Computed example of a mutant assay.
Amino acid sequence: MTLYRQLLSGMLLLLIVLIFGVFVVQFQTTKDFLQLQQENELDNTINSVGMALTPTLIKKTWSRQSHLSMRHLTVAFIKQ
């Protein structure tokens, strides 16, 4: 094998190794980014649902408290 062929095959092997290394690093970086994006989207969805349900939950809590208060007053009035 001539020196030219040895250098050419060595450079091609080095190029293939470097391309594979870049592919592995890029794949890992993309995987981490997508995982972080998914966590952020989940947090945003949870916050949106919580904000959407807050008025309903507050109304139900107030109505339940007012209902309990009226019931308590009614029972207290009847006992007198």
Rank of each mutant, 00 (worst) to 15 (best):
L13H: 14
T61Y: 07
F23D: 00
M51Y: 09
G10Y: 08
G21C: 07
T61M: 07
I19S: 07
V49W: 03
M11Y: 12
H67P: 00
G21V: 03
T74F: 13
R71S: 12
N44G: 01
L68H: 14
L15H: 04
R5F: 04
L36F: 04
L68M: 12
F77A: 08
S9V: 07
I78H: 07
M70Y: 11
V17E: 01
L15Y: 02
L57Q: 01
F77Y: 06
T2C: 09
M70N: 14
S66K: 09
K31L: 12
L53Y: 01
I78C: 09
K79L: 11
L73F: 15
K60S: 10
Y4W: 12
Y4I: 11
I46D: 05
N44R: 06
A52P: 01
T74K: 14
Y4P: 07
F23Q: 01
L36I: 02
F77T: 11
L7T: 04
V17S: 08
G10W: 07
L3V: 15
K59Q: 05
T30N: 13
M1Q: 11
A52G: 03
L18T: 09
M70Q: 13
Q6P: 00
D32I: 09
F33T: 05
I58G: 00
M70C: 08
L34K: 09
V24H: 00
L68G: 12
N47F: 01
V75H: 11
T29P: 00
P55N: 03
T54C: 01
T56K: 01
L7C: 10
V25I: 13
G10R: 11
N44Q: 08
H67G: 14
F33A: 04
G10N: 10
F20W: 14
Q37P: 00
Q35T: 04
D43I: 08
A52I: 03
V24K: 06
L12E: 14
Q6M: 04
Q35I: 03
S63C: 05
M70A: 15
F23M: 06
R64I: 10
D43E: 12
Y4D: 05
T61K: 01
W62N: 05
T56I: 10
A76F: 15
W62M: 13
S63N: 13
V25R: 04
L73A: 12
N47E: 11
V22D: 00
F77Q: 06
Q37L: 05
D43L: 09
I58F: 04
V25K: 13
Q26G: 11
I58E: 00
V17M: 07
L42Y: 04
